[in-house]
Every structure is written in C-alpha cells, then in structure tokens.
Amino acid sequence: MSLLQVTNLSKQYEGRLSLAQRLTGGRKTVVRAVSDVSLHVNKGEVLGLIGESGCGKSTLGRAILRLHEPTEGKVEFDGTDVTALSPPALKAIRRRMQIIFQDPYASLNPRRTVAEIVGLPLALHGIASGEEARAITTQVLKRVGLQPDQIDRYPHQFSGGQRQRIGIARALVSNPEFIVCDEPVSALDVSIQAQIIALLLELKQELGLTYLFISHDISVIGYLSDRVAVMYLGEIVETGPVASVLDNPRHPYTQSLLSAVPEIGAKRAKGRVRLQGDLPSPLNPPSGCKFHTRCPLAIPICQTLVPLTQAVGAEHHAACHRLHEGLNLLEGAQ
C-alpha cells in the first residue's frame, strides 16, 4: 500500500517585476522547478530521489510537505489530501511527516539549546511539557547517539556529524511515519557519512519509518533505497526498483549519470559516456524532451515532442522516445 501518493505535482516560482518593468509591459519570468511529477512511496520503503543540483529534487521534497505551496497537483498522505488541508489540519499532519535537512549548520537555531530544539515539536503539538518533555528529549537524543549530558548545550558546541544527529532527533521526537531526508549526508565527511547512513537505516527498521531520500550521490542512493526516481530539470525521467534502474538503466540521462560516477577498485567494466555542456537554465528550459540538448541519442522528434512515460519492466518506467530501440549508451561507448 502506498503511504504517499503524489499526482501531477508542479511548483513554479514567478519572478517579481519592478515598477519600470511593469510599465514597459515586461513579462514575468517563470521558473518551473517541478513540473508534473507523479510518484508514490510505499509504507516502510525508501524511495531514493536522485538528480543534479537545480533539478528540483529539494523543491519537490518541500512541496510534498507544503513547506513550499505546490502550484498544481495533489499530495495524498495515508489517504488524506495534504494539498487541501486547512492550516490547523496541516499543523496536525506535520507530526506525522517530517524532514531532515542537508546543512547541519543552517538547520539548527544557534540561539537555542539542544533541549529546546529537539523538544520544540513536543511543545508545539502539546505532546508533552516540562519534565516529561525533557525525559522524552533525552531518550531520543540517546537513541541517535548523543550523550544525555549534552542536552543543555548550544549547536555550535557540536561537530557536523553530531549536529546532524540533533536534526534527526528533532524529526523523530513527534513519532512521525514519513520523513523527507533532504541530502542529509552530503555535507559530511566520508567516515561520518557512513555513521549517519547506518543510523538512518537502523531507525527505519526499528520504528517502521518510510523515507523519501533525496541525494545527488548515486552510491548512497543505490546503497539504501528500495526504489529510485531520477530527476532532470523538474521532471522524473526514470523510476523503478533500485536493482533494475542501476543495473539496467533505460533513460540516456540515467545511463550517463551512472557512468560519470568515479569507481573504486575493480576496473570499469562498461564504457563511459561523457555528457557535453551544462544543465540548461530552468528559466528557459528546452522544448520537447528537456534532455535533448545534451543527449547523445537525440533525434529530431526529441526537440518538439515531450516523451511519454512508458513501462519498461516490472514497476520500471522511463520517458524517452527511443526506449523501444533498447539502446544502451554504456555498451555503445568505449
């Protein structure tokens, strides 16, 4: 059963016009950060959302929680339409849907103690207060691997990895069912990164959590996800079970993304594709298939027609005009 169902979700940002621009009839610039995204996350699974910077993956995560109001589309959480909730109902459901942020420095208020930061959800939702709240906070802090005697310290007295643990404790304290993990390990050193990943997986097992795990790191996503969704310029171009997508990527973008990751140890078995050029500006995205400007397989139709998402395997979908040809950049190269 899917816990979270996202249907045709879009989020666009409108640029502001100055008075002069308005008088001269300037048109508003519109950035479609997320366009027409549909996905689901099953109860108890990890959906890995992967993409490069600026592809809209963080915006999607925040739009699902309505931290950024979606422009169009629907988000259903456990049968409730989150997009239609009134402010009090939204506040109530936020107990059950949480987020862990990327930057362990910016995500903790420097003027609050750990007890205040982690205990905040308890106070906001009237779950507990006073000694009881402190006891719960201490317990959660212990669970994420911090010392109970550190509870009255300020964030600047902790290292990056410890701060990320505080952020995790804050997300856990209200007993949520679903957590958006927005690049939670990207800012950390390799050895600390492994500690946090291990902790997140343990917590998921223990508490039966469901994650939407956002990252640009294919190794991390490949290691901990059950299913993967690949995003490019605000759209999901490929989605499916992790083994299927990583071993048999069907979209040329996924293929080139996988081949760009430097590998350790065993010599690269497959060839290597080098994408030319940079990510196009989301202000002025390419027509047709958004990937056609960098795609080694692009044909004329790609410039005009938006490809439809098609099934390419069990639960494995991709959006590309040349899917049926069964091309694989990795085998063609070398």
């Binding site: 390799v190 500690q195 990943i197 294919i218 490949g222 350790i264």
Partner: peptide, 22 residues
Amino acid sequence: GLLASIPRPAMRGQPLTPIKGQ
C-alpha cells in the same frame, strides 16, 4: 575504514562499517 565507509550499491542489505567516533 575510509574505504569500508563508502556506501556502494553492491553492498545493499549488508551493514556499513563506519569508523566510530570523531
């Protein structure tokens, strides 16, 4: 420890062995 800390898709399901401490 550093090499063992790097998550790899091939290691799915196996526990990571992070270096403890800081």
